[in-house]
C-alpha cells in the first residue's frame, strides 16, 4: 500500500488531538434522575416528588399555552420541587419525547419566576451527531413561555439537526405550559 503513511499519519493525528478537542461534555448516558436532581438542587436542598392530576380544563389550558405543535397527552404529570428550608427553589420536570424515531429525555427546571433555569440532556438514542450540545441548550436558560420560544423565532438552530432543535423547543414549551397550569409553588398541584 503506497499510501500507508497517510493511514499512519491520520490515525496518529487522531490519537494525539482527539482527547483534547472532544472532551467537556457530560456523560449524558450515565446521568440518573438522582444525579440530574442534584445538579438542579444541590444538597442540602430537599427534593419533594409530586404528581399533578389534570382535569379537562387544565389540559385544555396547557395545550393552549404550549401551542399546537407541542403535544400534551397525559393528564398525570410527575415533577420534583426543590426546597431550601421551606423556600422553594424550583421545579424539575422530566420530558420524554421522540426526535426522529428514537427517544430523547430532558430534565427541564423552572425557577420560581417561571423562567427556564436548567435544561439537561438525560438520554438521546438517535446517532450522537444529532444530539443537542449543552452550550446550545444553554440558550434556553432564562426563557419564559412566549412567542420567541420557538425554533422558528428566538431559538437558534443546530445545523443538520433540525428535528432535534424542534423537539427541544417543543419540550420547553410543553413544560412551561404545564408549569403554569400546575403552579407548584402556590396552593399545591391540581
Amino acid at each position: 500500500m503506497r499510501h500507508g503513511f497517510l493511514v499512519t499519519l491520520g490515525l496518529a493525528v487522531c490519537a494525539t488531538f482527539a482527547p483534547a478537542v472532544g472532551g467537556g461534555r457530560v456523560d449524558a448516558q450515565e446521568m440518573t434522575q438522582e444525579q440530574a436532581l442534584r445538579l438542579a438542587f444541590p444538597p442540602p436542598a430537599r427534593v419533594e416528588r409530586r404528581t399533578a392530576y389534570l382535569d379537562e380544563s387544565h389540559l385544555a389550558r396547557a395545550r393552549a399555552l404550549a401551542g399546537r405543535d407541542a403535544e400534551i397527552e397525559s393528564t398525570v404529570v410527575s415533577y420534583y420541587v426543590g426546597f431550601e428550608g421551606d423556600r422553594p427553589l424550583g421545579a424539575a420536570y422530566f420530558d420524554a419525547h421522540r426526535v426522529r424515531t428514537l427517544p430523547e429525555v430532558l430534565m427541564i427546571v423552572v425557577d420560581t419566576a417561571g423562567r427556564l433555569q436548567r435544561v439537561e440532556l438525560m438520554r438521546f438514542a438517535e446517532p450522537p451527531e444529532y444530539s443537542p450540545p449543552a452550550r446550545w441548550l444553554g440558550q434556553l436558560i432564562g426563557r419564559v413561555l412566549d412567542d420567541d420560544l420557538s425554533e422558528r423565532r428566538g431559538i437558534a438552530g443546530i445545523t443538520g439537526a433540525t428535528l432535534t432543535t424542534r423537539a427541544v423547543a417543543r419540550a420547553a414549551r410543553r413544560v412551561l405550559a404545564l408549569h403554569q397550569v400546575i403552579d407548584p409553588f402556590e396552593v399545591g398541584p391540581p
Binding site: 440518573t32 434522575q33 427534593v47 420534583y80 426522529r100 428514537l102 446517532p127
Partner: peptide, 22 residues
C-alpha cells in the same frame, strides 16, 4: 431510596437498543 424520592429516583438511561428507521 434516594433523597426521599422512592424507587423512581433511578437511572433514566442505561442501555437503549433497537432499530431506527427514517
Amino acid at each position: 431510596s434516594i433523597m426521599g424520592l422512592g424507587p423512581a429516583a433511578s437511572k433514566v438511561y442505561q442501555v437503549t437498543q433497537g432499530v431506527s428507521i427514517g
